[in-house]
């Protein structure tokens, strides 16, 4: 099986994630879409690592996972806090910074 298919899969996953971030309002869903994009990127990295026969891509993939874990911790904490105070998880409601 050609390794190209992994790249196609990661491109599809990334596109789904990106579209989800732009079109969905629910913060949790947006969050999951971001995770999807991160994992698509990881898949690409690992695939290229395989194609090139080096370990660089895999090392970066680990870094990405660590960053994603941190992001989840902080991001979820923020979402929960906002939900508690505003009774809403819609990210369009959290648009106060423009003022």
């Amino acid at each position: 099986m050609s390794l190209d298919n992994y790249l196609y899969l990661s491109a599809i996953l990334f596109t789904i994630g990106a579209v989800g971030v732009v079109v969905r309002r629910n913060a949790i869903v947006v969050f999951m879409c971001v995770e999807l994009m991160l994992n698509a990127a990881n898949l690409t990295l690992v695939t290229f690592s395989r194609i090139n026969g080096t370990l660089d891509g895999q090392v970066i993939a680990f870094f990405t996972m660590v960053v994603a874990a941190c992001e989840v911790v902080v991001g979820l904490a923020i979402i929960v806090t906002i939900y508690r105070s505003r009774r809403s998880a819609s990210i369009d409601d959290a648009s106060l910074l423009k003022r």
């Binding site: 971030v21 732009v22 079109v23 910074l97 423009k98």
Partner: peptide
Amino acid sequence: SQTGFVRSYAALIL
């Protein structure tokens, strides 16, 4: 251009 909507920022970044 600074609407405050996270999604439009994300779209612009994209």
